[in-house]
Nucleic acid binder design. Structure first.
Lengths: 129, 129
DNA sequence: CTGAACCTTCCTGTATAGGGGAAGGTCAAG
DNA sequence: CTTGACCTTCCCCTATACAGGAAGGTTCAG
């Protein structure tokens, strides 16, 4: 199948598919005599896997690693488990950071309701911050 | 004071200060006969304000808006309050998104502990995702 | 044979907040 | 008078996951 059909089937764009090939996520497809990429249906499975990886917040580089391991004939499962663990602690850290920021922000916002705006002097620019 | 002193006093770099000027966050400083930027101490206050804005998660563009309002002789307080509100709802949305992702990830990770890795077939690449 | 729809490669741009470094000018001390 | 520390402008680079578009080739229907 040609790249346009594949893109539609995988709910993505031809741009993206060429980009994936460029980044080593898709192996170079066969070519028709005219020079068009000619895909087999297992590529669709591969793209779906990539999408699941993205849905899990993995970067394309990380997904590529997994695919490389599989392409070397090994099971990437342990590596995937490690990636999931790393992602989880990362996300927890991010959530905490955001919550800290949220607290700061809420404090400022709250203060803004209790401070007279007219007391805001020029040199401090704005009392609310 | 010269840019190096100011940078040290404000705990930042000369690169950053020139960048701020470039982006309209700092007004063009006076120059010495030799062409060096010559800052007055109120610039330090301004930089501190910028830092507080950044600590509140505002972008430089948003901080610039506040400064512009103040530089037009008006009190930016209402605008700041609006920005804080917007930031708050934004951050809440981000936190929810991250928590959703965390749930997805935790589900995958949990499943990984209950699924036999050996049942992972080549064509699905990895059962854990 | 021609036009539309598809494909090819290649180059540029996106947003953010600066960092790195080149080529050259300025200022004080020794 | 020179050396070193500072300053100037200018231009390129960073990460991420593509999108936009140019210039040209291919394929199929009518």
């Amino acid at each position: 199948m040609r790249i346009g059909e594949l893109a539609e089937a995988a709910d993505t764009t031809t741009k993206t598919l060429r980009y994936y090939e460029d980044q080593g996520l898709l192996r170079a497809a066969g070519r028709t005599p005219g020079g068009y990429r000619d895909y087999t249906t297992d590529t669709l499975t591969r793209i779906d896997f990539i999408h699941r990886g993205q849905a899990a917040g993995l970067t394309l580089a990380q997904i590529r690693q997994i695919l490389d391991i599989r392409d070397h004939g090994q099971a990437p499962c342990n590596h995937v488990r490690d990636l999931l663990d790393t992602r989880l602690t990362d996300i927890d850290r991010q959530i905490h950071q955001l919550q800290d920021l949220r607290d700061t922000l809420a404090g400022l916002r709250d203060r803004a309701d209790h401070v007279e705006p007219d007391t805001c002097s020029t040199d401090q620019i704005c009392r609310y911050l």
